[in-house]
Amino acid sequence: MSHPLDLVALTENIKQWGRELGFQQVGICDTDLSPEEPRLQAWLKKQYHGEMAWMARHGMMRARPHELLPGTLRVISVRMNYLPAKAAFATTLKNPRLGYVSRYALGRDYHKVLRQRLKRLGDRIREHCIALNYRPFVDSAPLLERPLAVKAGLGWTGKHSLVLNREAGSWFFLGELLIDVPLPVDAPQPEQCGRCVACLTTCPTGAIVEPYVVDARRCISYLTIELEGAIPEALRPLMGNRIYGCDDCQLICPWNRYGQLTDEDDFSPRRVLHAPELIALFAWSEATFLRVTEGSAIRRIGHFRWLRNIAVAMGNAPWDQAILHALQSRQGENALLDEHITWAITQQLARRRALAVDVQPPQQKRLVRAIEKGLPRDA
């Protein structure tokens, strides 16, 4: 194909167009991820992907972007901040009668937001090329997006396996645009975690089994979102009031003191999901669930898995007669839900016998204190 003669100028234009579309950073890299293949193979061999069969289904294609779109020469990697103002981290986590939803999921489904912007970016580039093949991705194909973002200079891999950036911490979404134009590439950033292991020691379930390696089977995000069956009983007490995802490893990270708040209205918290009461959430009918979660990433787990997660959180809450009645009111609706309701009722009755007042584990109390000290102003 024919390319513009001045690829350097085109690259600068692409980065400017990206910023105009709402991306805080745009980086470019080649498609060689061969160093990631042994790490991916070892991770899959240990079954750390759990029930996420799609992680293994396409083999090493995840590390070979050029196989997804033949002819691909470069990957344009972008990031978009999502941390909302008044995120109410500490308020929600320290009140076990409230349900904690990972902050990325409080607003509109980010997949749709980023993909639309990437499509517009690709169209803009095409206007300046004689011919162009491109394809946008946002968690929508077998692609190692984090190593690509690191290679494109958007940040470095933190010990929690997320991408960290000096100016933004890790509160951002990633997206990719595969193109067949040999643009100049960006330089990676140096790793800057040093000796810090805060994310490893803070993870409620010990899912970060070693620096840079997460056993998804223990991760609360996996348990509440990806896992379709029963949550392992031994892990339920460790989940606290986290009903969709978990942010603990990000909340404790010192680099997130520099996290930037989003100015995207789509990522503003939906009022009903912002520090919601567990009893109120557990009363939702399927129709209410579908209506409230329309356009949200939460909808994909379905009503009964949503209730499953809430039942576990209610089992972890202090003794409350109202919680007990709420749990009993939904018995018999679904076998998977019943298993978790029975467990939660047992926990509530045991707590009543012990007259426990504060059931937050010390680890969660320490996290809340760290949040209150270290988050950006207004977060």
Rank of each mutant, 00 (worst) to 15 (best):
residue 275 A to D: 05
residue 136 P to R: 09
residue 297 A to K: 05
residue 123 D to I: 08
residue 258 Y to D: 12
residue 345 I to H: 01
residue 194 G to N: 05
residue 92 T to P: 00
residue 325 H to K: 07
residue 8 V to Q: 04
residue 267 F to K: 03
residue 203 C to P: 01
residue 222 Y to R: 10
residue 320 D to M: 08
residue 243 I to Q: 00
residue 257 R to W: 08
residue 95 N to V: 13
residue 267 F to P: 04
residue 295 G to D: 09
residue 250 Q to L: 15
residue 134 Y to K: 12
residue 118 L to S: 11
residue 244 Y to R: 12
residue 256 N to A: 07
residue 304 F to H: 13
residue 38 P to Q: 04
residue 232 P to A: 13
residue 95 N to Y: 06
residue 196 C to M: 04
residue 234 A to L: 09
residue 82 Y to E: 13
residue 86 K to D: 15
residue 341 I to E: 03
residue 285 S to H: 05
residue 315 G to L: 07
residue 319 W to N: 13
residue 48 Y to L: 11
residue 330 R to C: 10
residue 293 T to K: 06
residue 268 S to W: 01
residue 193 C to F: 03
residue 77 S to P: 01
residue 129 C to P: 11
residue 316 N to M: 07
residue 97 R to A: 13
residue 288 T to N: 01
residue 122 G to E: 08
residue 297 A to R: 06
residue 106 L to R: 03
residue 359 V to G: 00
residue 268 S to F: 02
residue 275 A to R: 12
residue 274 H to M: 14
residue 362 P to F: 13
residue 10 L to A: 09
residue 319 W to C: 14
residue 328 Q to G: 09
residue 330 R to L: 13
residue 140 S to F: 08
residue 127 E to M: 11
residue 69 L to P: 00
residue 372 E to P: 05
residue 367 L to V: 12
residue 311 A to C: 11
residue 82 Y to V: 13
residue 96 P to K: 13
residue 345 I to N: 02
residue 214 V to R: 03
residue 241 N to R: 06
residue 288 T to I: 11
residue 283 A to C: 04
residue 270 R to V: 15
residue 325 H to C: 04
residue 168 A to R: 08
residue 259 G to M: 04
